[in-house]
Amino acid sequence: MPTEVKVMDAHEMRRALTRIAHEILERNKGAENLVLVGILRRGAPLAHRLSRLIEQIEGTAVPVGELDITLYRDDYRTHAVSDIGATHIPVDITDKKVVLVDEVIYTGRTVRAAITALMDLGRPACVQLAVLIDRGHRELPIRPDYVGKNLPTARQEFVEVRLEELHGEDSVCIRKPDEER
């Protein structure tokens, strides 16, 4: 039986996102020129939530985009993904401060792909990275600017983020693999 441990509930997730929203505003001295870009699938609802939180704090609406990185992955030859989303960014990102949003950062390869994908769409003034969970084990020199929770994990473990918009509840769980059979 795989065991599952809940490490974040809905309240904790809301507080973590609220703190990240404040940090984004603090670092960028306001909401001006910001664009939040969520990496599909799970980064997109988080980007929309951060935009709403920033609007509540600052009174300024920040545009939100969604980025599909399938075509930029480095493992197409071994694992071609079937479920492909559509990129939609409602503004030109050139000269904007882009905050990439994802649910978990792990090896850093997804973020590498996302940065390449962004550069094909324009030349942002800068790119920052916000994640709900940093589970470690980076394979590339990539580091998030905003972290909801640092979560030490083993490589065999699986971190599952469930979101109200996609799964009907907000939670983060660590699943441990099956015991040796």
């Binding site: 075509l71 930029y72 079937s82 559509a86 939609h88 994908a117 094909d120 769409l121």
Partner: peptide, 23 residues
């Protein structure tokens, strides 16, 4: 269905100023 869904997602690339992805 998979091919139709994938193509629907890819349509956006045709509207970009730089129509190139590295896949």
């Amino acid at each position: 269905r998979l091919l139709l869904d994938t193509a629907q997602s890819f349509k956006e690339i045709l509207e970009r100023p730089v129509k190139k992805v590295p896949t």
